[in-house]
């Protein structure tokens, strides 16, 4: 969910920009130059994955995958998602310059929180890892919805109903993302376990 231009208030936009800058500074500091190609190509992957529409009943939703972004990239999720959002703005005009900060924060902060909370469990054996994967996927989408709702509420108290709709719209996506993150992690554990978080807090 991207919040369009021209809706949020100055303080909310400013706070989003500052928080995203801090997150990116953190992400880029950990990103050695030999990891840039990897992060860039991963970021392209997430961009493509976010274009997938999965059917749900008569409608379809598109996926965020920010839980998976967090698990695979750690703090580098901030710059990677910032870049993906810049490209979305240029290609599709979803979001723009003033909302770049807040929209990146809405996506990337839950990714990093999911990474910090669940990385230890995800590298354990399947009995632990798969439920953890579900929570990573579902929780990061939920947190994104809550952050988007908060951004609206801080702009204008009267947006409470819209904010409620935004969170409500995230609930089905939450479940699907949780399920898909389980399959994704199960697949990676079998095929390429070194893509999932390894020992230690270092960014990958």
């Amino acid at each position: 969910m991207h919040i369009s231009e021209g809706i949020l208030s100055g303080p909310v936009l400013g706070a989003g920009a500052v928080l995203t800058m801090a997150g990116c500074a953190m992400g880029l500091r950990h990103l050695e130059s030999d990891k840039i190609a990897r992060t860039g190509i991963m970021s392209a992957c997430f961009f493509v994955a976010s274009l997938i529409h999965v059917p749900i009943g008569p409608s379809s939703v598109h996926l965020l995958f920010n839980g998976a972004v967090g698990l695979i990239l750690g703090w580098a999720a901030f710059p990677a998602l910032l870049v993906a959002l810049i490209l979305q703005a240029v290609f599709f005009q979803f979001g723009g310059i003033t909302t770049l900060g807040i929209n990146t924060f809405i996506m990337a902060f839950p990714a990093v929180i999911g990474y910090i909370l669940f990385r230890a469990l995800v590298r354990r054996r399947a009995g632990w890892a798969l439920p953890a994967a579900f929570f990573t996927g579902a929780f990061s989408v939920f947190l994104s919805g809550v952050l988007a709702a908060l951004a609206l509420m801080f702009t204008e108290d009267k947006f409470i109903n819209v904010a409620g709709l935004v969170i409500g719209a995230h609930v089905p996506v939450m479940l699907i993302e949780g399920i898909m993150t389980v399959f994704l992690v199960a697949f990676l554990k079998r095929v390429q376990p070194d893509m999932l978080p390894s020992e230690g807090p270092s960014s990958r």
Partner: peptide, 18 residues
């Protein structure tokens, strides 16, 4: 089945991308 298929497609995309 649909969700699994999409998840595996994305996963293989990641593996090849790496």
């Amino acid at each position: 089945h649909t969700y699994r298929t999409y998840a595996y497609m994305v996963a293989i995309l990641f593996v090849r991308a790496a």
